[in-house]
């Protein structure tokens, strides 16, 4: 496998600009969520959690999809950098997945008085995914670094992306027979302004994930390059 951590001085210069745009958009999203969007008639103020909760969930899915894409590239092109990119994407996805569970749980408590609802399909799906991708780290860090670890991590990331629709189907099937729905969730009927606020928040959160992804990737690449340098200097 070819070692290639491309030095990207031009791109590196754009990272602060990216972070600045992200910060701006997140601020804008908060303004929209709290001051522009009207209050929901049924759920009151706790509905505003949705403006972050749903984009965070969607972004987690996107991160896992991105990780699977990079994993596919690794297995196909066999360039080492795809392993790092896939790993960082899984890491971001897991963080945003944990955030989905946390914000979802708080919303459940605010709406129904319970910290957890087995009838909430999205939450249960995220719990399964969270377990799955947590095992990714257990697996990855118990294997010696090298092409074997990269390949195995990549195959596992691909399994994750296939698991998403299969698990979703399973949970849908389970809710009707094994766990009958006790609480029905009325999805927020979004007016025009609400939808705008949602879209702003979605873009902001996606950009946030991408910024964090680029930051972490830069850090890990630096690590690897420094290690190579150290080896070169101490032999």
């Amino acid at each position: 496998m070819s070692t290639s951590y491309p030095n990207r001085p031009a791109r590196g210069g754009r990272l602060p600009a990216l972070a600045a745009v992200t910060a701006l958009l997140v601020g804008l999203a908060i303004v929209f969520a709290f001051f522009v969007a009207p209050e929901d008639a049924d759920q009151g103020i706790s509905q505003r959690i949705f403006y972050f909760h749903v984009p965070i969930a969607l972004t987690a899915y996107a991160c896992f999809g991105w990780a699977a894409f990079k994993a596919l590239l690794l297995l196909w092109r066999k360039e080492e950098r795809y392993d790092l990119e896939s790993y960082v994407a899984v890491h971001q996805g897991t963080i945003f997945g944990a955030l989905t569970l946390a914000t979802g749980s708080i919303w459940a408590k605010a709406s129904w008085g319970h910290w957890w609802l087995w009838s909430e399909n999205q939450l249960v799906l995220f719990l399964v995914l969270f377990l799955f991708y947590s095992a990714y780290f257990m697996l990855r860090f118990s294997i010696e670094e090298g092409p074997r670890r990269a390949n195995i991590s990549a195959v596992y990331a691909l399994f994750g992306v296939v698991l998403v629709p299969v698990s979703f189907l399973a949970i849908r099937l389970a809710e009707n027979v094994i766990h009958p729905t006790v609480f029905t969730r009325d999805g927020p009927q979004m007016t025009g302004t609400m939808f705008l606020a949602f879209c702003v928040a979605w873009v902001a959160i996606t950009l946030l994930a991408y910024t964090l992804y680029r930051v972490e990737l830069a850090g890990k690449r630096l690590d690897a390059n420094l290690r190579e340098l150290r080896e070169a200097l101490t032999t």
Binding site: I30, G44, I45, S46, R48, I49, F52, H53, I56, I95, A98, L99, A102, T103, I106, W107, K109, A110, L208, L212
Partner: peptide, 22 residues
């Protein structure tokens, strides 16, 4: 603060804290 407001603050606060931890 009503309890609804507390929960909203908690949810957004968690996100904020995680980014800060980062």
């Amino acid at each position: 603060m009503s309890s609804g407001e507390k929960y909203v603050a908690a949810a957004y606060g968690v996100v904020f804290l995680v980014v800060l931890a980062y």
